[in-house]
Amino acid sequence: MGNEMGNEMGHETPETQLEVQPLLSAIDLCKSYGGLRAVDRVSIQVPSGSITGLIGPNGAGKTTLFNLLCNFAHPDSGQVTFDGAPIHTLPSHQISQKGLVRTFQVARVLSRLSVMENMLLAAQHQTGEKFWNVWFRPGQTQKEERQQREYASEILASVGLSAMAQSYAGALSGGQRKLLEIARALMVRPKMILLDEPAAGVNPTLINQICEHITQWNQAGITFLIIEHNMDVIMSLCDRVWVLAEGQNLASGTPIEIQQDPLVLKAYLGQ
């Protein structure tokens, strides 16, 4: 954490960042919908082990950028590199398998599956996910299932959802859904998680809880890229912040630098 090397005031060029090999980097990503250039030559770097923020006014293209990073939408041009390999040509499920997992802006839980099933689903490379293995390797399937169940219980316990494990995910409250979604992303055992507004529509106590969890998991080695409008969250969590406006890079720097950047103040923070 605390990659505050190579800081100069104001705007940095991507080149200065390349000294530290970033875990995720996107270069010159473009995406148009009809005549609208939703993302226009956006570059972003996320150093390994950091918590990086992504802010910008509504409609700045933050969520579209997330979609491009995970190939949920295919970029018109530009490239994305994760862990040293290009990923913008991979189908999105393979990106998740490589350890880059996303969450959604409006928490999307699988309603008619239990909370536990939501968690178990996220485990990768399960023997029982191939249908012939269900019949021909039942022992291995069950063994893995037991292990995953234990791991899932641990995570659920750490976010305080243990009591809900057997109820339908659709019966959870909004805040609990957010927690479940993050917990589920952890279950993938990822290198990096993209969080889309983890604090939106959540009460202050729960926001604090979520922030604590994020710090904790970050210390355990998971890199985060977070879209968030709640500036307190950004300021308290992030090592670096990238700012988008109207589909373009506006600025990047430490939270303090960003708060003082006149361009950012004008476009996003007001005053």
Partner: peptide
Amino acid sequence: RVLKAIREDEEVTKALG
């Protein structure tokens, strides 16, 4: 379980690999 997940939300299922 994957089938039921697809029934509920394809995108999420994709996002989970």
